[in-house]
């Protein structure tokens, strides 16, 4: 029986390459190697780089970005895309600081921001599923609306947000580990469990792998995708909370510039923009790589403008690699 196994491949170098790149973990393994190389290079170039303090620093700094990238990963796997997430983070800080200014306790502001974000996620989800609009357009529009509202509410100014207990969420540490980093890791682990161990996770991969087949199989496609938009939006609210607490201030445009980093991390992490493929661990490594790149270049006194260039180059390289990999897999 074993001899009659039917596959398309026939051996040779191409076969070996497909075997290698076809493994689900191959992309993550390649990222891991790249990450180690990056660390090695910076360690050689800067004496301040490879210290526990600096490493934890990186983890804390990228946490709010990682949070958004983590939540964006299952969404993109399911065939969606959320460009409004960073704008939601910006609005969140504004809402919290304004409510606090009016005398409400800080947690009311956080709660309200999360509720507002969830509502935005529902709207994003409904527009893309029910009306079958392109998520790029829908969430781009939503991004513009939200960042516009944040600017209107603040008049474009950054508002102070100094509340001792609250700021601890951004800058505090538990056994030396930055709290934002802990929140991020909990999110990654939680999403990994949902995506690989729960029924909802099966639906995520099915929806992105073949939406039409999924519909005909009778899985709740719309509910799945809308839920993911909500999760993404809420991750934006939590990221905005962390950022506000870290900075002790809420700027309407504080997080907006990180949108590209979020999307870049997801793609770099090996999640296919066409949906159906990807993992949160790839995203996590990519977030750490992008954060390390920033940190290392800063330590080497490279201008932050060059850091944008570097990030773009890394992203394009990653996308090219992904494309080559997809082609190698054939069909």
């Amino acid at each position: 029986m074993a001899q009659s196994i039917e596959t398309h491949s026939t051996g040779g170098a191409r076969e070996q390459m497909i075997q290698l790149f076809g493994k689900p973990w191959s992309g993550v393994a390649m990222l891991g190697i790249f990450y180690l190389i990056l660390i090695a290079v910076f360690s050689v170039l800067s004496p301040y780089f490879l210290t526990l303090r600096n490493m934890l620093q990186i983890g804390g700094n990228v946490a709010y970005i990682g949070l958004m990238a983590a939540a964006g990963t299952p969404l993109i796997i399911a065939g969606g895309l959320d460009l409004s997430v960073a704008a939601i983070a910006g609005l969140t800080g504004v809402v919290i600081s304004m409510l606090h200014g009016m005398g409400f306790p800080i947690w009311i502001g956080v709660l309200l921001a999360i509720v507002v974000a969830a509502a935005i996620g529902v709207v994003n989800g409904l527009f893309t599923t029910r009306l079958r609009l392109n998520p790029l357009i829908v969430t781009l529009g939503m991004m513009s609306i939200i960042s516009g509202i944040a600017l209107v509410l603040t008049g474009g100014l950054t508002r102070p947000l100094m509340v001792p207990g609250f700021n601890w969420v951004g800058s505090g540490r538990v056994i030396g580990i930055p709290i934002p980093f802990i929140i991020m890791m909990v999110t990654f682990v939680g999403l990994w469990v949902v995506m690989t161990k729960m029924r909802f996770g099966r639906y995520i991969y099915a929806a992105g792998g073949n939406a039409e087949a999924s519909r005909l199989i009778g899985i709740p496609l719309e509910k799945t995708v809308i839920t993911l938009y909500v999760i993404s939006a809420i991750s934006g609210a939590i990221a905005g909370t962390i950022l506000g607490a870290m900075l002790g201030a809420a700027g309407p445009t504080a997080a907006g510039s990180q949108l590209l980093t979020v999307i870049a991390a997801i793609i770099l992490g090996g999640t296919s923009l066409n949906g159906g493929r990807g993992s949160v661990w790839g995203t996590l490594l990519a977030v750490l790589i992008l954060g390390t790149l920033n940190n290392g270049l800063t330590l080497l006194n490279v201008s932050s403008f060059w850091q944008d260039v570097t990030r773009g180059v890394v992203l394009m390289l990653a996308v090219s690699l992904d494309q080559i990999r997809t082609r190698a897999l054939g069909e």
Partner: peptide, 29 residues
């Protein structure tokens, strides 16, 4: 190809997909 298989998933997942709730034990698959 267009309406039947979900190409990137395994044979197991393709078979189990329509009735996943039957393979659930508590919260987990």
């Amino acid at each position: 190809k267009k309406e039947g298989i979900i190409a990137d998933l395994s044979v197991r997942e393709n078979i189990a997909l329509p009735f996943e709730e039957r393979f659930e034990r508590g919260l987990f698959m």
